[in-house]
């Protein structure tokens, strides 16, 4: 049902955890629906994402897409990270079953929510 890459990221998720002094934090999803993703970003003065961590409640594909999304944006600038699409995350995992595509949408939304939080904080600082 799942590709080897999905199973690899599910069993050995990259970047699980919390960043206590994160510059941006985004939470998306709903426990009622069975998926919640929380993403933490550390962003330097050049707007490069230097660290990223996540926590996810959900099925194997929710965990795998979170893990893959963190790998794909680490080291990227904020603007580059905003270009991340759910399709790119799914493709990097060698595809997802059709009913699980919404998990990749959540991963994209989690990244965007964390960046939005970062930009909101920035605005308030200035």
């Amino acid at each position: 049902m799942y590709s080897d890459k999905v199973m690899d990221h599910f069993e050995h998720p990259r970047n699980v955890g919390v960043i206590e002094d994160a510059d941006g934090v985004g939470t998306v999803g709903n426990p009622v629906c069975g998926d919640v993703m929380k993403m933490y970003l550390k962003i330097d003065d050049n707007e490069v994402i230097t660290d990223v961590k996540f926590k996810t409640f959900g099925c194997a594909s929710a965990i795998a897409t979170s893990s893959m999304a963190t790998e794909m944006i680490k080291g990227k600038t904020v603007d580059e990270a905003l270009e991340l699409t759910n399709k790119a995350v799914a493709a990097a995992l060698d595809g997802l079953p059709p009913v699980k595509m919404h998990c990749s949408v959540l991963a994209e939304e989690a990244v965007k929510a964390a960046i939005e939080d970062y930009r909101d904080k920035k605005l308030k600082e200035n």
Partner: peptide, 8 residues
């Protein structure tokens, strides 16, 4: 549970 934001 270590991975779950709900737990925390």
């Amino acid at each position: 549970r270590d991975m779950s934001p709900l737990c925390e």
